[in-house]
C-alpha cells in the first residue's frame, strides 16, 4: 500500500499525478498540453521545451491538490518509453533528481502498460482484450503468462497519427486535439466516401488510407463532391470499423468476452459506440474511460509503477534512462497471475 507519484511526458502532454493504492484513489492528476497551430505537428525540441517550462508548476499543483508534501510520497514513477527522446528525457531528469533529493525509490514505467493498468483500474475489468489506440500506437493486446501480448497492430502508421495528419490536410485546429475536432465534425457528416479498407488478419494498415485521402480530398472538396464533414465521417467510419473488426477477430481467437479501450483515440465516442455494438452482438462487455484517463496522464504512470513497486521491485538509478522504442510485450508483468 503506497502513495505513488507519476510523471508522464512522452508526447505533447505533460502530466503529473498522485495515487494512493491503499484507498485506490487518484489524489491528483494535473496536465498541460503543448498545442501547435493548425496544420502543424509537434516537434521534439519545442515539446521538450514546453515540458521543461511547465514541469515544476505542474508538480507543485499536483502536490497541492493531493494535499501532500514530499514526505508523504513512497515511490516516484516516470515514463521510460516509448515516446519522443527529448520530452521523455526532460521528465526523466526531473523524476531522477527528485528521487535523489527526496531519497525515494524510483520506477521506470512502460507508457503502454500505464494505459492498460489505468484502464483496468478505473473500469474494474479483469482480463480484457485491450484495444490501445493513440497517436503512436495501435495494438490489440491480451494478457497471457506474465506478458501483455500483442495480437494485432498496425503494420505501418498508428491510427492517431493517421487522424492527426488528416486533420492537417483540412487545417483543423489542434486545440484541444485534432482527433477531438475530427470527431465533432464527423457528427455533421452524412455521405460515406469510398476509401480503402485494409485489414490483414488481426493487423491493420493505415498509410494507404492516409495517402489516398491526402491525394483525393482536395479534388473532392473543390468539385463539391463532399464536405469536410463528410470526409471526417468517412474516415472515422472506415478506420474505426477496421479497429473493431480486428478486435473482434482477436476475441474469437482467444475466446475472450471483455474489451477495454485505452489510449487517446479511445475517448472517441463513436469508436466506443461501434465497439459496444460489436460486443452486444457477441454477448461481450465493453469497458472504456473518458478523456481524464484515456489521454496521457501522470496518474496512469503512478498506477502501473505502484503495481510493480508493490511486488518488491524498483529501478536502479543507473537504469533510469529513457528509450524511444519500448514494446508493450517486452515488459515482464510480475503483478498478475
Amino acid at each position: 500500500m503506497v502513495i505513488a507519484i507519476g510523471f508522464e511526458g512522452s508526447a505533447n502532454k505533460l502530466g503529473i499525478g498522485i495515487v494512493d493504492t491503499k484507498t485506490n484513489t487518484i489524489l491528483s492528476n494535473c496536465r498541460r498540453t503543448y498545442v501547435t497551430p493548425p496544420g502543424e505537428g509537434f516537434l521534439p525540441r519545442e515539446t521538450a521545451q514546453h515540458h521543461k517550462s511547465k514541469v515544476l508548476e505542474v508538480l507543485k499543483e499536483a502536490l497541492a491538490e493531493a494535499k501532500l508534501s514530499q514526505d508523504d510520497i513512497d515511490v516516484i514513477c516516470y515514463t521510460k518509453g516509448p515516446g519522443m527522446g527529448g520530452p521523455l528525457q526532460v521528465v526523466a531528469i526531473v523524476a531522477r533528481t527528485l528521487a535523489l533529493l527526496w531519497n525515494k525509490p524510483i520506477v521506470g514505467v512502460n507508457h503502454c502498460i500505464g494505459h492498460i493498468e489505468m484502464g483496468r483500474n478505473v473500469t474494474k475489468c479483469e482480463n480484457p482484450t485491450v484495444l490501445y489506440v493513440s497517436g503512436g500506437n495501435t495494438q490489440v493486446i491480451a494478457y497471457s503468462r506474465q506478458r501483455y501480448r500483442i495480437f494485432g497492430e498496425t503494420i505501418d502508421i498508428a491510427v492517431g497519427n493517421c487522424l492527426d495528419r488528416f486533420a492537417r490536410v483540412l487545417k483543423l485546429s489542434n486545440d484541444p486535439s485534432p482527433g477531438y475536432n475530427i470527431e465533432q465534425m464527423a457528427k455533421k457528416g452524412t455521405k460515406l466516401m469510398s476509401i480503402p479498407y485494409c485489414v490483414k488478419g488481426m493487423d491493420v494498415s493505415l498509410s494507404g488510407i492516409l495517402s489516398y485521402i491526402e491525394s483525393r480530398a482536395p479534388g473532392w472538396l473543390d468539385q463539391g463532391e463532399c464536405t469536410p464533414e463528410d470526409l471526417c465521417f468517412s474516415l472515422q467510419e472506415t478506420v474505426f470499423a477496421m479497429l473493431v473488426e480486428t478486435t473482434e477477430r482477436a476475441m474469437a481467437h482467444t475466446g475472450s468476452n471483455e474489451v477495454l479501450i485505452v489510449g487517446g483515440v479511445g475517448c472517441n465516442l463513436r469508436l466506443q459506440e461501434m465497439m459496444r455494438l460489436m460486443c452486444d452482438e457477441r454477448g461481450a462487455t465493453l469497458y472504456a474511460t473518458d478523456e481524464r484517463y484515456c489521454i496521457d496522464n501522470g496518474a496512469m504512470i503512478a498506477v502501473a509503477g505502484a503495481l510493480e513497486f508493490e511486488t518488491g521491485q524498483s529501478t536502479k538509478l543507473e537504469d533510469t534512462f529513457v528509450t524511444q522504442r519500448y514494446r508493450t510485450d517486452e515488459v515482464f508483468i510480475s503483478w498478475r497471475t
Binding site: G41, L43, P44, R45, G85, G86, Q89, G135, D164
Partner: peptide, 15 residues
C-alpha cells in the same frame, strides 16, 4: 537506441 537528443525518425513521422 536510448534517447539521444533530437529523434529524427520521430520528428519526421510526427510531422
Amino acid at each position: 537506441d536510448s534517447g539521444d537528443e533530437e529523434d529524427a525518425v520521430d520528428s519526421s513521422e510526427v510531422n
